[in-house]
Amino acid sequence: MHELGIVFYIIRDVKQVAEENHVGHVSNVVMDIGEVSTVIPEYLTDCWRWAADREELLKGCGLKVNVIPAVTHCDGCGQDYGTVQHGKICPHCGSENTWLLRGNEVEIKEIEV
């Protein structure tokens, strides 16, 4: 439900980049969204359509979302595993001494102009 807020952040950043590069219209924005970032891609694209069409620079501009699978690293045994399947506890050795390697991204990867 915070997707609209995130869309406003994206629009602000894209506007800034467009200005710096003297771009009049952006045709596509590509996002890297981590699987456990709490951002839901479908909601993000819905909010995007609503908000982007209200900006001259972004009228009709697409939003492409690359989902980055979440991977957790275990300091106990040194192995990596899928966060969504196994959560906080390492399936290899049972350790809780684990941390998220990737999957929390909410990044603007690039824009097409």
Partner: peptide, 8 residues
Amino acid sequence: VIEIKKSV
């Protein structure tokens, strides 16, 4: 394509 690579 303009690469941004920046967290929101």
